[in-house]
């Protein structure tokens, strides 16, 4: 389990020591990164490139290293063991996953920050829509407060510092804002698309070219092939033999398996190859916009 030698064994009393160590690390890293901002501008590019390459290398190793099956008592587990390094490489991957999630989490906060900026600006400028901005900021604040409070209450219950009965109000409040408001709004928002599809189908889905006609015909067969009542249209055809091919559900299945599957696979493969090529370009530092301008 010990990935780093740099650990402190925890007891209920020494939390201050652990916190101090962490704060020191944060402080030291900040100074180091502050130093980075002073490096000459021609070194910036290789530096970013190095960060990119090393982070990618960890996953490439995970892919390339051999795995072995290890029997420990009753459990079989798969481990990636390499010479010299005495631990399971999977531990490195676990840390890596933490790193990427923590980083993306904090970067996501950037998005929240810009939403806040836009709406606070509207409120302070007394915009015509200021009321709606207040509504937005208010419901956001309510969700954050209720959500975090509920979470803290749940955590306290888990260690026996509180009881579910004592926190009933906050649990109810959270379940109202989450289940009865956010989730319901989510479902309603996506269901609105049904109406827009209907209107678009009426106005824009026109047989103007061969492509549009093919697409429409396939969409029609697929739709009908999924609907039991529509299958009744061709239920008169025999279930076996040549004529059974013209039953609508069989036509649908045939199209899905033999026409749309290879077509979508070709798109997927194109996409996959493109992503792979881009990934290699990024790792090697030749993709524009990541390490290179």
């Amino acid at each position: 389990m010990e990935l780093f030698a740099f650990t402190i064994n925890r007891t209920p009393e020494n939390w201050a020591t652990a916190l101090l160590a962490a704060v020191l690390v944060i402080f030291a890293t900040s100074i180091l990164l502050f130093g980075l901002s002073r490096i000459p501008s021609n070194m910036r590019r290789p530096l970013v490139g190095l960060f990119v390459f090393i982070s990618g290398l960890f996953w490439i190793l995970d892919w390339a290293l051999p795995r072995s099956r290890v029997q420990e008592g009753a459990t079989t587990s798969v481990k990636t063991l390499i010479p010299i390094y005495p631990y399971d490489y999977q531990e490195v991957i676990n840390v890596l996953v933490n790193v990427s999630q923590v980083m993306s989490g904090i970067i996501l906060a950037l998005g929240v920050l810009s939403i806040l900026r836009v709406h606070f600006k509207k409120v302070f400028k007394g915009d015509r829509d200021a009321f709606f901005s207040i509504v937005l900021l208010g419901s956001m604040a309510a969700m954050i407060v209720i959500g975090l409070w509920d979470w803290i209450a749940t955590n306290r219950e888990a260690v026996g510092m509180s009881t579910p009965e004592a926190n009933e109000t906050i649990h109810t409040a959270f379940s109202i804002v989450f289940l009865d408001m956010l989730q319901i709004l989510d479902a309603a928002m996506f269901s609105l698309i049904a109406f827009f599809i209907l209107s678009a189908a009426y106005r824009a889905f026109r047989v103007r070219s061969i492509e549009a006609t093919i697409m429409m015909a396939v969409a029609l067969i697929v739709l009908l092939g999924f609907i039991p009542l529509a299958m009744a249209l061709t239920a008169g055809l025999p279930a076996d033999g040549f004529l059974s091919n013209f039953r609508i559900e069989n036509m649908k299945t045939w199209i899905l398996l033999n026409m749309s599957t290879p077509a979508l696979r070709a798109i997927d493969l194109g996409l996959g190859l493109g992503l792979l090529a881009m990934a290699l370009r990024i790792l090697l530092g030749i993709e524009k916009g990541v390490a290179v301008d």
Partner: peptide
């Protein structure tokens, strides 16, 4: 949900046909 779905999709198909 099958019967509402069927009639909703029939409506859609009808809309496409009438539109064309």
């Amino acid at each position: 949900y099958m019967s509402p779905l069927f009639f909703a999709l029939m409506l859609l198909i009808l809309a496409v046909v009438v539109g064309n």
